[in-house]
Design a protein around this nucleic acid. Structure first.
Lengths: 150, 150
DNA sequence: CTATATGCAAATAGTTTGCCTGTTA
DNA sequence: TAACAGGCAAACTATTTGCATATAG
């Protein structure tokens, strides 16, 4: 049984195993396409990219793989109001900027001390498993005239 | 046609008008139920509460009203990964804590200077219309601090 | 009056589930 | 070989839309 997935970088399977998740060709290829591009694809986009490498994979399996990878800390999920869930290979604590004009998502680095300060705002007894910080707005590529937003 | 909504606090219609939104009995009653409880209901929950006051209202209208109220800055919307959109009467800039055990959402106050510092982390040219900060985790049931629940 | 909102039902998007087969450790 | 993952289609949930009627300014 020779599958394309079998020819992948073995470190992917290793990283999956290291996290305690059973490696399957489907999980490896889903993980691979998410790592390959440093963007924030939706499940459908992951499915499209994965199908090129493994034409037999189903969308439901992509969803299952994504969920497993998220659950075992190999990728993160991001979501924005009225947008499908997106997946992110960047495990480093960071924020997201959602550019409404282009639909693109940009990673924003947040200094660790500031993240710590955010967590410190929680009342006693509140234990945060995760902090989600996202911005929504627009990016202007060049110096623009005075703001005229409403 | 006499409707319960007609007997509402006229300031609701006034506040809607003040924002430049046409006041309708449906919008008023949706706005009313969101203000009545300082929690974070989903559209379905709003629908259930509104139906008590106006049995003829439809779910689609509730969605339309919620969208209009959000768009005109009368309420805010919050969302969490794989959760339906929730609506929030608290217009003050604040964060949310999603308690995974209870499903409840608690408002967390964030000092204005910290919010400003978060915005200042954006690269030049990035204009944030909104900042969304949310925590996910658990709350140890101890003497409850002053935070809004659900 | 005229633009816009409502109500209903049907459509859609995103995601999950059931069931049976295949694969992994 | 026992537990778990995949494939497919159907189910499901949240939300949006089309269209005829009603209503607000």
């Amino acid at each position: 049984m020779t599958m394309i997935a079998d020819t992948q970088n073995p470190s992917l399977a290793q990283r999956i195993t290291d996290r305690g998740l059973r490696p399957t060709p489907q999980r490896e290829v889903v993980y691979q396409v998410i790592l390959a591009k440093r963007d924030h694809p939706t499940a459908e986009e992951v499915f499209a990219r994965v199908k090129i490498l493994m034409s037999t994979i189903s969308l439901a399996t992509v969803y299952n793989c994504l969920e497993a990878l998220v659950q075992y800390g190999l990728i993160k999920q991001v979501n924005f109001v009225r947008e499908p869930t997106r997946y992110c290979p960047n495990l480093h604590e960071h924020a997201h900027f959602h550019d409404e004009a282009s639909g693109k998502i940009h990673d924003i680095d947040i200094p660790a001390d500031l993240m710590a300060r955010l967590r410190s705002l929680l009342p006693a007894g509140y234990a945060a498993v995760s902090v989600d910080l996202s911005f929504r707005g627009s990016v202007r590529s060049a110096p623009a005239p005075a703001a005229h937003n409403n």
